[in-house]
C-alpha cells in the first residue's frame, strides 16, 4: 500500500484539493475514474511529481521509481521500433556512445515479452496505435520503473487493441513487475481490469474503494452526478446509464 495523506493544492485563490487522502495498492491496477474537470490528470501529475502540492504530510511514492506516460505523445521520425525503445538507455549516463551487452539482452527480452519481435525493425510510422503504446510500455519497463502512471493509455484504440494493452498491463502487475495507476473512461473496461478504484467527483473529493465498494449506485452517482443501473450476473458487474 502506497499512502498519500493530507494533500492540499490551490490554484491562485481557488482550493482544488483540500485534505485529500488516497492510497494505491501495490502490484495491482489502480484505476482513476471521474468526470472531465474533476482532476484526474491533476492528481496524476501530483503523484508523479510534475505538479508540486501546497502541502502533503505523507507521500508514499517518494522512494519509488516511477514512469508517467501522458495521454498524447509525439514520436521521433525515422526510427525503427528497436531504436525507439533503446532511447531509454541513454537516460542516465552523461557520456554513453554504445549499449552494453546486458542492455542489448534486456532490450531483446522486453521486445519478445511484449510481442513486438515481428515488428522490431519496422519504422515507427507504420505501427498501429496499440503497437505504439506497447513500445512506450517497453520504455517504461526498461527504465526500471516500479510504478506506472498511464493517462488514458487506450484512448484512440479499437476495442481489440484496448483489451490487448490492458491484458498486458494486467499481466505485468500479476507478475509483480509493476504497480499501475491508470486513468480510464470506460466503466465496464475499468470494472473488468481494475483491482482498486479511485473516484474523483466534480467537487474534487476523492474516494478510494475496492471493486465491490465502488460499483454501487450511490458511489457512481456521487462521482458522476447521474444515475446508473448496475447488473450483477454473478460473474461480473455491468454498468449502464439509467435514463
Amino acid at each position: 500500500m502506497i499512502d498519500i495523506k493530507n494533500l492540499y493544492l490551490t490554484f491562485g485563490d481557488n482550493i482544488f484539493f483540500e485534505d485529500v487522502e488516497l492510497s494505491l495498492r501495490e502490484h495491482k491496477i489502480n484505476v482513476i475514474l471521474g468526470p472531465n474537470g474533476a482532476g484526474k490528470t491533476t492528481i496524476l501529475k501530483i503523484l508523479t511529481g510534475i505538479l508540486k502540492p501546497d502541502k502533503v504530510s505523507e507521500f508514499g511514492l517518494i522512494s519509488k521509481k516511477i514512469f508517467y506516460l501522458p495521454q498524447k505523445i509525439s514520436y521521433p521520425k525515422g526510427l525503427d521500433v528497436e531504436e525507439y525503445i533503446s532511447s531509454v538507455f541513454f537516460k542516465d549516463s552523461m557520456v554513453k556512445w554504445f549499449l552494453t551487452k546486458e542492455e542489448k539482452n534486456r532490450l531483446d527480452d522486453i521486445i519478445n515479452k511484449l510481442g513486438l519481435s515481428h515488428i522490431k525493425n519496422l519504422s515507427m510510422e507504420k505501427l498501429s496505435a496499440g503497437e505504439l503504446q506497447k513500445t512506450n510500455i517497453a520504455i517504461g519497463l526498461l527504465s526500471g520503473a516500479e510504478v506506472f502512471f498511464l493517462d488514458e493509455p487506450t484512448s484512440n484504440m479499437d476495442l481489440i487493441n484496448q483489451i490487448k494493452i490492458l491484458d498486458m498491463i494486467k499481466k505485468l502487475t500479476e507478475q509483480k513487475e509493476i504497480t499501475a495507476v491508470v486513468i480510464l473512461h470506460d466503466l465496464n473496461l475499468a470494472e473488468s481490469y481494475g483491482d482498486y478504484f479511485i473516484g474523483i467527483t466534480k467537487e474534487h473529493k476523492i474516494f478510494c474503494k475496492s471493486k465491490e465498494g465502488f460499483f454501487t449506485k450511490d458511489m457512481l452517482k456521487n462521482i458522476y452526478g447521474i444515475n446508473f443501473r448496475i447488473t450483477d450476473d454473478g460473474e461480473r458487474v455491468y454498468v449502464r446509464v439509467d435514463k
Partner: peptide, 18 residues
C-alpha cells in the same frame, strides 16, 4: 548520444530524470 534520450516525448516522466 544524450540526444537519443531527449528525442523521446518530453511529457514522459522518469523519476531519475528530474
Amino acid at each position: 548520444p544524450k540526444l537519443n534520450f531527449l528525442r523521446l516525448d518530453e511529457g514522459m516522466v522518469f523519476s531519475s530524470v528530474k
